[in-house]
Amino acid sequence: MSVPRGDVFLAGVGGQGTLLASEVLCDALLLSGFDVKKSEVHGMAQRGGSVTTHLRFGPKVYSPLIEPGKADLLIAFEKMEALRFAHYLRPGGAMVVNAQEIFPPSVATGQERYPQDVAERLRAVTDRLHMVDALAAALSMREVRTVNIVLVGAASHFLPLPEAAYEEALKARLPEKFVAVNVQAFRAGRALLQPALLQ
């Protein structure tokens, strides 16, 4: 799928590495000649809270923020976070969602239950829902911290960039000793979704 511009919304839980994932996406987009703007929040929210990144690319981008109902792609690092920010997706937009569940305090302490119907509710938002098990893929590489790059790999099917752009971005961004495992994570993530299944 080739688009001249796009709004990508990333949602996750503080500590999951959404920041690195969005950096890699930005670098890959910039290397491919797009104007890019990205916005996220640092500080207190990062301590295990909901974290989001707004990433926009095109020939010329003004606002660093995506409006609700305008995102072309939502990449969620945690299942329930996909639902929390589902209203940012435009009608017909695509979602790549990590099936991993991380309990928020109210669930972890037994005050309320983790919603059991997340997948159904997400499907009601878009029929272009792609649920992947990025945690299992990362664990199979014995590096749990690569969940973020596995998701970048899965999401890469929805962005107008060649694979080489991501790998180049990873090489530029990461210390050398982490490049190989992250390139592997990217490829594993990309292999989680078969292009034929994608609309």
Binding site: V13, G14, G15, M44, A45, Q46, R47, G48, G49, S50, P68, G69, M80, E81, L83, R84, F85, A86, H87, L89, P104, P105, S106, V107, E112, Y114, P115, R121, V125
Partner: peptide, 18 residues
């Protein structure tokens, strides 16, 4: 007023001590 989908109700996820 531009109508967009209402946010879904899910358990809150405030920041927490690590």
């Amino acid at each position: 007023a531009i109508s967009v989908r209402a946010p879904e109700t899910v358990p809150p996820r405030p920041p927490n001590l690590c």
